[in-house]
Simulated scan of single mutants.
Amino acid sequence: MRQTIFWITLGLGVGTVACGGSPKPATNPSTSAATSEPAPKWDDSSESSDNARHPVFSSSSPPSAANDQGWKPSGAPPAAGSPAPPAQQRRTDSYDKEATEVVLRRAARQVKDNCGSAKDENGKAAGPWGKTVVVVALGHNGHSKGASIGSPFDGAPTGRCAIQAFSSLTYPPWAGADTTVNWEVDIATPKDAK
């Protein structure tokens, strides 16, 4: 904190010296309008060629959206006469495919990394292994309502593991009806079962 105050004080002192000494006292604009001197005009004719090449330091009008330096002002309004870009509207009657697929891919990675070594009642990883499809029930409230898997994985430890990975997903909700998604998974064969 002390260091910050030091730098602010130093900056004000240097700025005061650089600007010609002590600042003028503030005046009320309504009473001194007739007696005050006119404000100096900005003269950009003496602009250095170095500043002319850098739009950030240039005193000319704001640069176009794509100038020769590739600089684009952020949050700047569109140029006069150009139409405003259309606002992207997300559909609310169906699920957000992009955001939901991120969650589904994560669950599929969990299946591939973990479910191949799921053990049966005897403590053995007995499979089956390979690629299959998990049918995921997506609730419109943003939570999965369960999953199912086809034969021969149905009822097997590897299949139960895959169903569990997809049964408690969270994703953006939507206003439409619930839906189902078929998602391919790979239940990898564990190294000790080969």
Rank of each mutant, 00 (worst) to 15 (best):
N141G: 15
G142S: 13
G142D: 10
G142C: 13
H143L: 12
H143M: 14
S144Y: 13
K145M: 14
K145E: 15
G146S: 12
G146R: 11
G146F: 10
G146Q: 11
G146W: 14
A147I: 06
A147G: 13
A147P: 15
A147M: 15
A147R: 13
A147Y: 14
A147T: 11
S148R: 15
S148V: 15
S148N: 14
I149Q: 10
I149Y: 10
I149R: 13
G150K: 13
S151D: 14
P152G: 09
P152T: 12
P152E: 07
P152M: 11
F153S: 12
F153W: 13
D154Q: 10
D154L: 14
D154E: 13
G155D: 07
A156Q: 14
A156Y: 09
A156D: 08
P157D: 06
P157M: 08
T158V: 06
G159E: 12
G159R: 11
G159N: 10
R160I: 06
R160V: 08
R160D: 10
C161S: 05
C161H: 04
C161I: 02
C161L: 02
A162G: 06
I163S: 08
I163C: 05
Q164R: 11
A165Y: 06
A165H: 03
A165C: 05
F166D: 04
F166Y: 07
F166A: 10
F166W: 07
F166T: 08
S167E: 01
S167P: 01
S168C: 01
S168G: 05
S168I: 01
L169E: 10
L169G: 15
L169N: 12
T170Y: 04
T170A: 13
T170Q: 11
T170E: 12
Y171E: 02
P172Q: 05
P172I: 09
P173E: 05
P173K: 05
W174G: 00
W174I: 00
W174L: 00
A175K: 15
A175V: 03
G176A: 00
G176D: 01
G176T: 00
G176E: 00
A177D: 03
A177N: 02
A177F: 02
A177T: 02
D178C: 05
D178Y: 00
D178T: 01
D178I: 00
T179S: 08
T180W: 09
V181D: 02
V181E: 02
N182K: 13
N182D: 12
N182T: 03
N182A: 12
W183I: 01
W183A: 05
W183F: 08
W183H: 14
W183E: 06
W183P: 01
E184M: 07
D186W: 07
D186S: 03
D186Q: 12
D186G: 02
I187Y: 03
I187S: 00
A188I: 04
A188E: 01
A188N: 05
A188Y: 01
P190E: 03
P190N: 00
P190S: 01
P190Q: 01
P190H: 07
K191G: 06
D192L: 03
D192K: 07
D192Q: 07
